[in-house]
């Protein structure tokens, strides 16, 4: 097997693809968005529980290839406890990582440990056709942040 392919399909990715983490709708989630890649049919729904501009909880549902499932799964792990600003910054760094651009490389708002966790997806860089798979969940997360919060239940 070639080294690029091995880098793309690392054990961590295969593992998250097979058994995605936070694969549910968290209790109290108040922001939701659906993401769909009409070219390949991948679908994800991202649920966020935002409170005071902070991601208290995050989960997702959907189906797709190993890359999109793993990327979304890893995203949910690193986003918990982040502010909305930090979430945006992380996505920009991640996006740059996949597309090979360096625009936001020095972004101070990004936690180094979190970013290192996402580095397992760096192999996608060699596969421009697959960048959309790796970013579907992230775009959906951004859309969810932009939605209006659910009305607070008085139950």
């Amino acid at each position: 097997m070639s080294s690029e392919l091995r880098e793309l399909y690392q054990e961590v990715i295969l593992d998250h693809g097979r058994t995605p983490r936070n694969f549910h709708k968290p209790e109290g989630a108040n922001h939701h968005a659906n993401g769909h890649n009409p070219l390949c049919g991948d679908r994800v729904t991202v649920h966020l529980k935002l409170k005071d501009d902070k991601v208290e909880d995050v989960g997702f549902e959907g189906s797709g290839c190993a890359i999109s499932m793993a990327s979304t799964s890893l995203m949910t792990e690193v986003l918990k406890g982040k502010t909305v600003t930090e979430a945006h910054a992380l996505f920009h760094r991640f996006h740059d990582l996949l597309t090979g651009s360096e625009d936001s490389a020095g972004d101070a708002a990004v936690d180094t440990d979190d970013f290192e966790r996402l580095m397992v997806l760096a192999g996608v860089r060699e596969y421009p056709m697959r960048v959309k798979c790796a970013t579907l969940g992230w775009h959906t997360m951004e859309a969810a942040i932009g939605t209006e919060a659910d009305k607070v239940s008085t139950e």
């Binding site: 793309l8 399909y9 693809g17 049919g41 991948d42 290839c65 190993a66 697959r130």
Partner: peptide
């Protein structure tokens, strides 16, 4: 089994096999 068509397509490509992977515009 256990492999999404798109992942299969990428691995096939590496092995020198060009195929279509997806819903084939026939959802």
């Amino acid at each position: 089994d256990g492999a999404h068509p798109h992942d299969v397509g990428t691995i096939f490509d590496h092995h020198g096999v060009a195929v279509r992977a997806g819903h084939h515009c026939a959802q």
